[in-house]
Structure formats: C-alpha cells, structure tokens
Design a protein around this nucleic acid. Sequence first.
DNA 1: GGTTGTCGTTTACATATGTAGTCGTAACGA
DNA 2: TCGTTACGACTACATATGTAAACGACAACC
Lengths: 122, 122
Amino acid sequence: MTEKISDAEHAVMEALWEASPLSASDVTERVREARGWSIQTVKTLLSRLLAKDIVATEQDGRRFLYRPLVERDAYVAGESRRLVDRLFGGRAAPLVAHLAEQDQLSRQDIAEIEALLKALKS
Amino acid sequence: MTEKISDAEHAVMEALWEASPLSASDVTERVREARGWSIQTVKTLLSRLLAKDIVATEQDGRRFLYRPLVERDAYVAGESRRLVDRLFGGRAAPLVAHLAEQDQLSRQDIAEIEALLKALKS
DNA sequence: GGTTGTCGTTTACATATGTAGTCGTAACGA
DNA sequence: TCGTTACGACTACATATGTAAACGACAACC
C-alpha cells in the first residue's frame, strides 16, 4: 500500500538506505555525483517523500534528519513483482528464461543461481 | 533509444502485440475488460504512441489500423534491464536470489529454471 | 440529399514529476 | 549587534500522464 516512489525519489531513497538518518545536505552530497541535483531539488524530493509517508524526520537542532520508513527490501520486492506481473504473467521462470535468452546472464550468474536453487530445494 | 512507454500506453501495446493491425475501436474492445477506458482515451494513447514512433498506421478506407513498431521482446528486454540496473547493480543473479528469498519461486519455477540453465551451459 | 454515426484531430484538465527559485527565520560568526 | 548563512516552507513552471470531451470531415443509410 505504500505510495509510488518516482525515479528521482528513488535516487534519494538509495542514499537514505545506504545511511540514515541524513540531513538534506547530506543527501544532496550523496546524490551529487550520480545526479548533480541542487539542494533545492533534493529538498523538494524529501518533502514529497515525507508527504507520502515514505520517510520520517527527526528534529536535530534547527534542521531535520530524514530516515526511511520503507525497507529497501520491501521496495525491491514490490518493484520486482510489478515487473513480473506486468511482463511475465506473474511467473518468475519466464523472466529468468528471458534474461538467459538475451545473454544477460554471465557464466558466474548461472553458477550462482544454480547454487541458490540447489539450496532452495533442500 | 525508443521513447518511454507509460503504463497506460503499455496496456494498449499489449493489445497490439497480441494481434495487429487493429483499429482504435478494436483496441478499445480488447482493453475494455482490463481497463474500462473510453474510446477517446484509447485514441489519445494511440496518438501519443504514434507521435513517439512506437506504433505505425496504415490506411484502411476512412480509418487507420495500428501496428507496433517495437517488438514486445525488445520492450521486455529493456524494462528488465532497467530493473536489474536500478535495483540489483546490473547483475541478474541477485534478482533471482531476491525472488527466491521472497518465496516467489514455485517448485515448478525452480525446475524450469534449472533445466534452462543446464541447457545454457552446453 | 439530409441525418446519423464514425474517424481522426484538437483541446481540456487534473495530477505527477523533474528541477528549481524565493522568503521568512533562526543561528552563527565577527 | 548586525550581516551572513543555513533551514524548512511555499511557490513556480515545464513536461508527462491519465482520462476524456468537442470538433470537423466524411461515409453510410433512409
């Protein structure tokens, strides 16, 4: 039921998932390289995330520190499921098949996945 | 480099991938159940897809028939890659690991994937 | 041949999104 | 104490998106 996180907001969330709580300027610093946003932009994104209850704040003197309310894992799970539902009829196997066909699996990926599956079956 | 396909546009594309060429009303009929859009809405979406060169038209008497210019496979590949890049650092194995952890893989999925990988290694 | 229905085209409008600028205020530094 | 700075809040504005209504042209039917 969590509200939708946009692309830009997602970049901010990645910073917060990496470390938190962070002030707006901390976040700006952390996303500067990847996105080059002004602090104003980051503040707007943080406000929107706040309004959507995706992050929370705590007072730190005159400023706010931001902290995620949504776990990265939950977000990743949601997005993965959305993709699988939309494009693969809700089944995960066709997704893996697709990745394989597109040669997007390295030899190492294959080995890792096999090991994983073996573990799963036990 | 194909332009972005929005969620609503994607529903229209699925109809066209299933069968094409189709008229606007054909498409409307095919998406009616899933989305319940008016024909006006479908026409707008088709125009936008046309403007983005994602579909093409051919004249059929007084009306147009629409046909995809982008293969479903290419779209699926792009979206899958985007997800893997954004959420799994570009590596596919962690995605599979994630699905596994979330219990999103059925026993049958596992069997299918194993067979697939075995085939890949040969 | 006028009416009606069907097309594509144009316009509409609310909300979301990307990307900031401005403003009032409170703290900090000289 | 007085200017500078750093904050959050509010405002801005273009483009994208979802969802259509209105319009004008033309074809089919009576």
